[in-house]
Design a binder for these strands. Sequence first.
DNA 1: GTAGGGTTAG
Length: 645
Amino acid sequence: MRFAFAFASTRRRFVHRNVLGKGDLRTALPSISICGFRGWRRAFSGLSEDSRERLRNGLRDIKLDDAVDLFGEMVKSRPFPSIIEFNKLLSAVAKMKEFDVVVSLGEQMQMLGIAHNLYTYSILINCFCRRSELSFALAILGKMMKLGYEPDIVTLNSLLNGFCRHGKRISDAVALVDQMVEMGYQPNSVTFTTLIHGLFLHNRVSEAVALVDRMVLKGCQPDLVTYGVLVNGVCKRGHTDLALNLLKKMESEKIEADVVIYSTVIDGLCKYKHVDDALDLFSEMEKKGFRPNVVTYNSLISCLCNYGRWSDASGLLSDMIERNINPDVVTFSALIDAFVKEGKLLEAERLYEEMIRRSINPNTVTYNSLINGFCMQSRLDEAKQMFDLMVSKGCLPNSVTYGTLINGFCKAKRVEDGMKLFREMSQIGLVGNTVTYTTLIQGFYEAGDCENAQQVFKEMVSAGVPPNIVTYNISLDGLCNNGKLEKALAVFQDMQKSVMELSIFTYTIMIEGMCKAGKVEDAWDLFNSLSLKGVMKPDVVTYTTMISGFCGKGLKQEADALFREMKEDGPLPDSGTYNTLIRARLRDGDRAESAELIKEMRSCGFSGDASTISLVGNMMCDGRLDKSFLDMLSWNPLPSKASVR
DNA sequence: GTAGGGTTAG
């Protein structure tokens, strides 16, 4: 046997796997055992004329259900139709990308004693490869070769695809092509295109691009599919210049482009912020005679929406309607989502009605956006109603739906309702992600319920969902704000020991926690340890937090000193820094110094914030301050920073 | 009768 690579795993027997559940294929198939010998002449007749006709036509446009029915009819008829007819059927199902069904049908054939031939094996190998189940494909290859069939270039290309899709065998894929050549096979454009695609799958972009030149050297011209793979691969990774060059190259090589390839590049340009280039290419494709389709429009419309270019987006919508390119659920969902994010819920609802009027069925994504819209406005009951509506329409909520609602309830301080939803979600088999869990943890801490917050954290870990730095920061903050500094410190220590990369934000939370617990000295030690370590620079919030801590303890000199240090060689003080200091001065009753600081703050372009103004208001009421302070804070005699710029 | 690919929305 000339196949040196008769892989070790081929020794493993092809395991029959019934991938479909009971009730689908099983019931479609005949039950041979119940047909007694005398009955079989009546039970098993030939194929109907209709089915013969279908098979003659190569099963064009056949639906999956019909194909499965036909298979049932075929295995009932005696004698069995030839393997060629079965192959036609398997091939048709494979074209629908229903690889599981193909595998299952092949298995049923085997059980009925319908012998596979080279093509049957080829189809099955292809299906396993498409499902990234290389070992099964190799097992069939072994079996096939044992029976004396030698794989041809088609089967080898399928196998190559299997290696490419396998998580760890891309280098074996590269080697396989060389091996093919050694064994006297001539790789064709499918071979190279498959490998190029595989390299992209493993993010080996430059190798993928370089392979095109290599294939030309080997006498293999790239075709439209090759360019499709290349253009998509580079666009998805932001190399839109390269994609545009590829379009030109296609033209010079007289390879006719198509609407999909243009749409791919347009979408790439949109995603990587070259909106106007996308619009240019859009008109260029029209000039070249390629008619855009709904997908082309959808890319552009959602992109324009994301940039807030509403009138351009709706212009394109009217364009497409005028040209009889019908908007679909994606078009409407994109527009609805964009309006929701802009807070224009009314417009979003109008679009929803419009799509119903056009008999376009909203899907989960559409409802998710609308639910999000209500959540954003804290209209939780309406959000829940929308949720019920979608369920009643047979539209299945997914983890985004639940995540959105849970987030809404938590933000509206209704963490218990959020938790109820979370339980419901788990019951129907949807898994929460890090964000969902983190939202709930935050909700419980904000409700002062540390116990449940920690419980959710534990559940998260045991469910195998990894807490991230945000989860930890929220936990630290929650513990500190609920008077559990000791516990927070313990967690903080664990974090420092872990591989997690801490941000300055984490340290600021701890410094604030220590200050609030009256442990300003500890906070100051931590603050200084930052500069000593040198890895983490305190930012303006860290400084302000520390200054605020000093002020709270009446350590005026320390606060002033840190403020000076900040101005000399730290981060620039911001409105928060000034307001923190000003409130401290005002509380001290130091009017002159307060006024001085206010003036300085104004000269930097900041003004009094809400809590400073409310403090001044209170002090005016009990007569400790006069109105001039309020004027200083809110009246604007100085040019603002913006107008100076 | 068998092989490769690409576009849109949360």
